[in-house]
Design a protein around this nucleic acid. Structure first.
Lengths: 199, 199
DNA sequence: CCTATCTTGGAATGGCCGTTTCAAGATCTA
DNA sequence: TAGATCTTGAAACGGCCATTCCAAGATAGG
């Protein structure tokens, strides 16, 4: 007998993601959310709870709809080195051009802000960093099996280095770093960390 | 004939740095500054101007009193590889232990937040990133001159990679990353990027 | 000591914050 | 169609925001 929602919560969450991604938690007001979604305050609070819970939901949706697909692609791409290179190429393009240029990564941004004072957010950040490491690890091992790596390369530390590098890319891209230079730097890093020589 | 200030602006600024460093711009209120410094609102505004100008002053002081000394030490340390290793060791210790543990780097934090929407802040961030690259570049060249590097290592890209890596360290340390693991990862990265083999 | 000049304390400013409340509207079952 | 149940709109809440104002206090030159 009840009434039914007059909107699609997931679509709304996509809009909210964009707000928090670009502006962060503290700088984004509920009024901004109301303006951007067209929703009413009542509907917002009834559906998502308060601001903090809304941010958590948005962060989780960002991870699910943006980060994880990219990591999944990397993990299932068995080509080894080319897969890693392509992952970073796509990352840099996303960070530097198009709609999301200079937005950085919502996860990286959350690392640096006050967002991570919420233990639940902190847990999401750690989990996602772990996923990033695992995906890179899988790709490095894949490269290793195809003898694309120098002997003695440790897959674990190589993945760790590349994961930290990704955070660096995310950070600097938000400050408007030059895409071409990022490409060059990342290519050199991949070559170095895998013990291969650069083109 | 005028009255004179009843406090030391630089000492006050040091306290303000700690606030903005840990909490960021948006999350830190003027009231927090008043509480932490013991200063009055009037004195604050008369001395530093508004909140934004206070943040800028604090960021510049952070750079001058914390970042630049470390970079200067790196730049003047002519030992090459050991200098680079020591720089990162000190960085990780600062980020993970003691008073500033889990505070990250105020410059890295500003990258990811809304702080960088101020063009003047943005300029400070770019300048400081450039300084980081230059200092690392100097150290890499120094290593090169002492034949500590593999032939064909490009000093420019090596420095770029290490600079991005430093940002990654700063970011992850704020999320409570394990110091030991960071040390291991960084050591591997230095070894890789310089073409040397790891211990 | 007097007074011009700056500093200081503390209250007051308007505005925006996240959140709540509640009546009016919409929906689906029976 | 009657009515129970949820959603929606709009106003209102207390509280905190950055900032300003002004009277009272402190200083140093004349």
């Amino acid at each position: 007998m009840p009434d039914v929602k007059h909107f699609d919560p997931d679509a709304v969450l996509d809009t909210v993601v964009r707000l928090f991604w670009r502006q962060g938690l503290a700088t984004t007001g509920i009024q901004d959310v109301v303006n951007a979604t067209g929703l009413n305050r009542s509907s917002l609070y009834a559906t998502f709870g308060g601001k903090q819970e809304l941010y958590r939901a948005a962060l989780e949706r960002y991870v699910d709809s943006r980060s994880r697909p990219a990591l999944g692609k990397l993990e299932e791409d068995g080509r080894g080195l080319p897969a890693i290179a392509e992952f970073f190429t796509g990352l840099i393009e996303t960070r530097c051009t198009g709609e999301y240029a200079r937005w950085g990564c919502m996860v990286s941004n959350a690392h640096a802000g006050t967002e991570n004072s919420d233990p639940e957010v902190q847990a999401i950040l750690d989990r996602q960093h772990e996923r990033l490491r695992e995906a890179l690890h899988t790709a490095v091992v894949s490269a290793q099996r195809q003898h694309q790596l120098a002997d003695g390369t440790d897959a674990d530390t190589a993945a760790d280095v590349l994961a930290l590098l990704a955070h660096g890319v995310n950070l600097r891209s938000r400050a408007g770093a030059d895409a071409q230079q990022l490409h060059t730097t990342v290519a050199a890093a991949i070559a170095a960390v895998t013990g291969t020589t650069q083109a």
